[in-house]
């Protein structure tokens, strides 16, 4: 297919179509851009949750989506403060730059940050090399998340997941009901029409709320750019120490990730999404500004999660994790 052909045909078609649509130009000037529409939708969701739930919390993962979510929450309640705390589920294997960024940002903005770790599992030596990625995620992410939510008695938890990330997420509601065990039943989701969200739950049940559901990865970057939102420096390219193994770049951070002779190299690289250091692959990149990251992104030919080691375990592994209670 040739792009120019489509363009030419579309132009011809516009002329045809315009015959019947003389009065659209005045309304066009009042039109909101897609980012304005997405922002308005997300803010409405934040305000509904704050009004309808007893004890909401925002899951804060430190990544770019969380950064956008945080800005939208600030906007939703401005000039008041964000009326709920942030919860970071810390696996203990996050990059140290992430933790520094988190602590600086929450201090500057005066946010109420809670951190939850599965200390017992960490004491028992849980790590992805010893347990495999699935069991490790199960203990340090899913169990920790469910325990953290239960311990604080949160009845609604915002997450930064987007429907364009992965196929099972494409079916997730904006208000996603979780039973008493925190689990998701994809076959029995509440119908969700217009922007009328059903926030009613019984004791012990909860709702996961995804205000960024309709944002794409490009929308998120574009918003970070236009809003000048601070993000973790790991997203920007620089010379980093990496284990180079086949096509994978594994950041050198945790001692239990062993390298073979010659594998450790300085590579100009960056992270496309942030996770745990042993399980998040880096990419070779020169993108050290947000426009360059976007330029790289629009030229990208593989989807965002492809460099997440964890998703390769089994086909449909995200759906299994989600059913168990993961985001």
């Amino acid at each position: 297919m040739s792009v120019s052909t489509v363009e030419d045909q579309a132009a011809v078609n516009t002329v045809d179509a315009s015959l019947g649509q003389q009065n659209t130009s005045s309304a066009t000037s009042a039109r909101l851009s897609h980012l304005q529409l997405l922002e308005a939708e997300s803010i409405q969701i934040f305000r509904e949750v704050a009004a309808e739930f007893q004890k909401p919390v925002m899951l804060y993962s430190i990544g770019k989506d969380s950064s956008v979510m945080l800005r939208l929450a600030q906007k939703a309640f401005y000039p008041g403060p964000i009326p709920f705390p942030l919860l970071h589920v810390d696996t203990g294997y996050k990059f140290h730059e992430m933790i520094e960024f988190r602590d600086n940002l929450t201090r500057e903005l005066g946010l109420d940050l809670k951190v939850w770790r599965n200390e017992q599992a960490l004491l028992d030596g849980a790590n992805p090399v010893a347990l495999g990625t699935q069991r490790c995620c199960g203990l340090l992410k899913t169990t920790a998340l469910l325990d953290g939510l239960r311990a604080h008695g949160y009845d609604a938890a915002f997450g930064g997941a987007r429907r364009d990330e992965e196929k099972s997420r494409a079916k997730e509601r904006i208000f996603s009901f979780r039973d008493k065990a925190g689990q998701w039943d994809p076959k029995n989701q509440r119908p969700e029409v217009w922007n009328l969200y059903n926030a009613r739950i019984s004791p012990g049940e909860s709702i996961r709320v995804f205000p960024l559901s309709n944002w794409t990865e490009l929308d998120v970057w574009h918003y970070i750019y236009t809003e000048n939102i601070p993000i973790v420096p790991l997203y920007f390219a620089k010379e980093r120490r990496m284990i180079v193994r086949g096509d994978s770049l594994i950041p050198v951070e945790q001692s239990f990730v062993k390298s073979l002779p010659g594998e450790e190299q300085w590579v100009r690289s960056r992270l496309r999404s942030l996770g745990c250091s042993p399980c998040t692959g880096a990419i070779r990149s020169d993108a050290d500004t947000i426009p360059k990251i976007i330029a790289e992104l629009v030229g990208f030919r593989s989807s965002e999660r492809a460099n997440r080691v964890i998703d390769h375990d089994t086909d449909g592994s995200m759906e299994i994790k989600k059913r168990e209670g993961y985001f």
Binding site: V6, Q9, N13, Q21, T24, A27, T28, A30, R31, L32
Partner: peptide
């Protein structure tokens, strides 16, 4: 082409 040209925001 149709999807690209249908008026929205009106």
């Amino acid at each position: 082409e149709h999807l690209e040209n249908v008026p929205v925001g009106v």
